[in-house]
Design a protein around this nucleic acid. Structure first.
Lengths: 231, 231
DNA sequence: TACAGTTGGTTTGCATGCACCGTATACAGG
DNA sequence: CCTGTATACGGTGCATGCAAACCAACTGTA
């Protein structure tokens, strides 16, 4: 589970998050407070508040007065915008991390990269998705910018669902084993290169590599996207 | 008023936003639901929801269970992080705008720049702050990235308060007239240069100039900041 | 005096109920 | 048959009330 420290199954918000992103709801479906309330066994109030919070973070659309909120449908265009948005933020995180260059952050990133490397070859391993997520979360943390970290937390959680959880329930791309392993190896290599730039306090390089990494990853994750132009 | 189209004085959220950022509350002060509710003449529920929305957007801190929310205090370190965060996002917006290069967006940006130019010399003019804000909002819009626009809306509103409204009520820096006019002229020139890069579809240049513009602007707005290293 | 338990006040979390708004449907008029 | 209007229904916005949790001061005992 991404950011397991902040996920509390007893909180209505997290249960609603899971409900929306685990495929239980159709894309673009309206979130009816009363229905969700009885489905979760609580009153409408905590549902209302959670929905408004998700709206504020862009995880839902709509929300005009008396209009209610709807789930996103994640069309190719939306996924592309999501990916663009993430590239901007995470590139910036890498840049800031390279400027602050904290010894503990580097150790943490190195450890995560090593752990990830052990998982290369386990195609479909949940631990792989978990570790990949944790690496990017650690990268955000290394920026030492509270606002950026805050935004990235929600963004990464969303990407985790959109890129890993969501697609598995609709159609799995059925990648060949060799290709999958090659991709995983490339991801580990990319991560290592980004960390190295941060270690050398190369802000421009760190940002460039982080963006490139996400461009390739995002492109293959959302294979529907047309040719990925360089950002 | 920033983003006047989205600001509705009848909505509790906007009134609360004004209350928090107009200096009526001390930095770091706790937002007590009951007190705010009777102060705004509504019940606790809409206050609760608005507070949770502001928390989700990082406009307030705290919010753990039974902990309540507090206003930010905007220490120099926080202002610096806010400014860094904005540079990342707005630089990205300029980059995307240069990639999409929409004729209407360019016309809108040009018009706003011209309007702004007319205000050079009117030091302290509210119209200046308004137009500056609208220019940056238009820049965000020109990115054509819904997520980025959404985040930038709230971020710009916050910056508007932190950089323009908030300081006026504590201590005004008392800039000399000549310096003030020079600064305003520089802002207009910067804006024009950014638009020009977008027009030429120069993504790297647009991003670089937008970042540089915000670095200088942010540095002088938060004059407490130590030497602004290049981002 | 020091410390632990208790107790009252304050604040948040949540359930219930009612009022308002938007939309679809049925009906009357042209 | 088409169009404008009234009305019923689904759904959200909000007020009220109660229970749980936190905090601080008070008190009793060692």
């Amino acid at each position: 589970m991404p950011f397991s420290k902040t996920v509390d199954e007893s909180r209505v918000y997290d249960r609603l998050l899971k409900l929306v992103f685990s495929g239980s709801m159709a894309p673009g479906e309206r979130l009816v407070e009363r229905r969700l309330a009885e489905q979760l066994g609580v009153s409408r109030i905590p549902v209302r508040e959670s929905v408004r919070e998700m709206l504020a973070q862009g995880l839902l659309v709509g929300g005009d007065k008396w209009a209610g909120a709807c789930t996103r449908n994640y069309t190719p265009a939306e996924v592309r915008q999501l990916s663009e948005y993430r590239r901007i933020l995470e590139g910036g995180a890498a840049r800031l991390a390279a400027r602050h260059t904290d010894r503990n952050d580097l150790a943490h990133l190195d450890r995560l990269r090593e752990e990830t490397e052990k998982e290369v070859g386990n195609y479909g391993s949940p631990r792989w998705a978990q570790l990949d997520h944790e690496f990017h979360a650690a990268l955000a943390q290394a920026s030492h910018n509270e606002r950026l970290i805050h935004t990235m937390q929600h963004l990464l959680a969303e990407c985790h669902y959109v890129f890993y959880v969501y697609p598995r329930q609709q159609r799995r791309p059925e990648l060949s084993y060799a290709d999958a392993v090659a991709q995983m190896a490339r991801v580990v290599k990319d991560h290592g290169a980004i960390v190295e730039r941060i270690r050398q306090a190369d802000a421009d390089g760190a940002e460039r590599l982080a963006r490139a990494h996400l461009l390739v990853t995002g492109r293959q994750a959302a294979s529907d996207l047309a040719g990925g132009e360089e950002l």
